[in-house]
């Protein structure tokens, strides 16, 4: 096995699977262009070939030298602190990755909740809204359950969950909850400070972007969140 670790094998497998998947997908648009003999697939397939070559090169290098930096590079990524943070945190074992990726799947389950329900039921617009309103607290409970003991995974997932909810529930209702969530996950427990942070950040964002710059932020599309957002925008503008 040389100096290989499980992580190195997963890394190489990821790149090679990605290259293979995208190569197979390229047949979807494998059409000729009259004035350009390489067609629409020439450039992406050349890139995929190079990607596979680089992945094999990286794998071979890791086999020979493990995690060492190469001397041909200037300024390794470890210099930016990300690798060091990962090393110090100890978040690199297989179990941590599995629980983190399970957590990261939660927002995507919410985004596809109506499709999954649609397999069993025929849904109209109101039905989709109802499914979303039921799925949101249920998946929040799943998120909280999975987040126990995986603070970093929870921090990575919360913004995605927030983004997934924006379309339906809107920025104005979700942003204060998001601020509270992130602040709590960062270790802050003083209620007054959290409330002050919510007030200051929301005040700043609404004043600058909504009142002064007239930026239209997501209002959601499910009542009563939609109505609440519109009322707020009307008051601010």
């Amino acid at each position: 096995m040389g100096k290989l670790r499980l992580g190195h094998i997963c890394e190489a497998a990821f790149w090679l699977v990605l290259a293979t998947f995208l190569y197979v997908e390229s047949f979807e648009f494998d059409r000729g262009i009259e004035i350009y003999k390489f067609g629409a697939t020439g450039w992406p397939r050349a890139l995929l070939l190079l990607l596979a070559v680089a992945a094999i090169g990286q794998f071979t290098y890791q086999f020979l030298a493990g995690d060492k930096s190469t001397s041909g590079t200037v300024g390794a990524a470890s210099d930016d602190g990300a690798e060091e943070a990962a090393r110090q945190s100890g978040h690199s074992d297989f179990r941590w990755y599995v629980t983190t990726f399970c957590l990261l799947a939660v927002p995507f389950l919410y985004m596809r909740a109506h499709d999954l329900t649609g397999i069993f039921l025929t849904l109209d617009k109101e039905g989709v809204h109802t499914v979303k309103l039921v799925a949101a607290p249920l998946l929040l409970a799943v998120y909280l359950f999975l987040a126990r003991g995986n603070q970093v995974g929870a921090i990575l997932t919360l913004p995605l969950f927030f983004a997934a909810l924006l379309e339906d529930l809107g920025f104005y209702a979700m942003a204060p909850l998001f601020i509270v969530g992130i602040t709590l996950l960062m270790g802050e427990r003083r209620a007054r400070w959290i409330a002050l942070t919510v007030a200051l950040i929301m005040g700043f964002l609404l004043l600058i972007f909504v009142s002064l710059l007239y930026v239209g932020l997501p209002t959601g599309n499910i009542s009563p969140f939609y109505d609440l957002s519109h009322l707020l925008v009307t008051l601010l503008q």
Partner: peptide
């Protein structure tokens, strides 16, 4: 050759962006 830990990771980063 800049920013990544190894030359290969540098190329993989760039190729990901290109893709």
């Amino acid at each position: 050759t800049v920013g990544a830990k190894t030359l290969w990771k540098g190329w993989l980063s760039i190729l990901l962006g290109l893709i």
